[in-house]
């Protein structure tokens, strides 16, 4: 089915959709910020600095999610020899890197008043920094290599190495003693976060996901324009 990929049809969507996604993003973000900054209660222990979490946690989730998607797409692209998958993966990367950096910076800002330090070399924080480096590598690989076949192979290789780090990030807080606290939200057992704080967290996650979608559509649109300019109507 992927063989009949038609840039023209997809281009119709990617050139129009961003406006609507943008509107939806602004709407969801406004509700999310209102909930996170005004309506949600302060924490019993850390008082108002809990509000940093509403940016920190969604950003970290999105960063992990996008890297996993990029890996899945690159591996599928490699196995099925589908070039479109690589272009989708390439277009996803920038927002992943941005959210990864946002997670690191907000974590640092939260760490100072809570832990008493800006930075600690504990397993969670270090593995998150390593993920940012893999994002960086992935993005510059696309810029350095001109030849398509070469860039597909190299970016796939980077994602293979990077994906090993994802479970380490997720489970570092359970496997080892870390300064970072374990996960508050568990799918199987009861979450240790109060529902009044869970709501803004979820809305902010939706807002960040929409933002990633918006940047993705714009990047992907650019890739399709590049294809068109080369006079190719299929990959």
């Amino acid at each position: 089915m992927f063989k009949f990929f038609e840039p023209n049809k997809i281009f119709l969507i990617t050139s129009k959709a961003p406006k609507y996604v943008m509107l939806l993003f602004i709407l969801v973000l406004s509700i999310g910020l209102l909930e996170a900054l005004v309506l949600s209660p302060e924490d019993y222990k850390q008082s108002h600095s809990v509000r940093i979490m509403y940016v920190h946690v969604p950003a970290a989730w999105i960063a992990l999610g996008i890297f996993s998607s990029i890996t899945f797409l690159s591996l599928s692209g490699f196995i099925f020899k589908n070039k479109n998958f690589f272009l989708i993966a390439k277009s996803l990367a920038p927002s992943g890197l941005v959210f990864n950096i946002v997670a690191l910076v907000t974590g640092s800002i939260w760490g100072k008043p809570t832990w008493g330090t800006w930075w600690a070399w504990d397993a969670r924080i270090t593995s998150m920094l390593i993920l940012a480096m893999f994002y960086f590598l992935y993005i510059i690989a696309w810029r350095i290599y001109e030849e398509k076949e070469q860039v597909f192979k190299i970016t796939t290789l980077i994602t293979i190495f990077g994906i090993i780090n994802i479970p380490i990030i997720k489970y570092s807080v359970d496997w080892w003693n870390t300064l970072h606290q374990p996960a508050s939200i568990n799918i199987l057992s009861k979450s240790s976060i109060h529902s009044s704080m869970l709501l803004p967290l979820m809305i902010m996650t939706a807002a960040f996901a929409l933002f990633s979608l918006l940047i993705f559509l714009m990047k992907y649109n650019t890739e399709l324009i590049k294809l068109k300019n080369k006079g190719l109507d299929r990959l």
Partner: peptide, 18 residues
Amino acid sequence: SKILAKHDENYMPPEVKA
């Protein structure tokens, strides 16, 4: 020579804690 506070995974408003 340095003390760091470790935060746990519990988040709740003060009323709930009380």
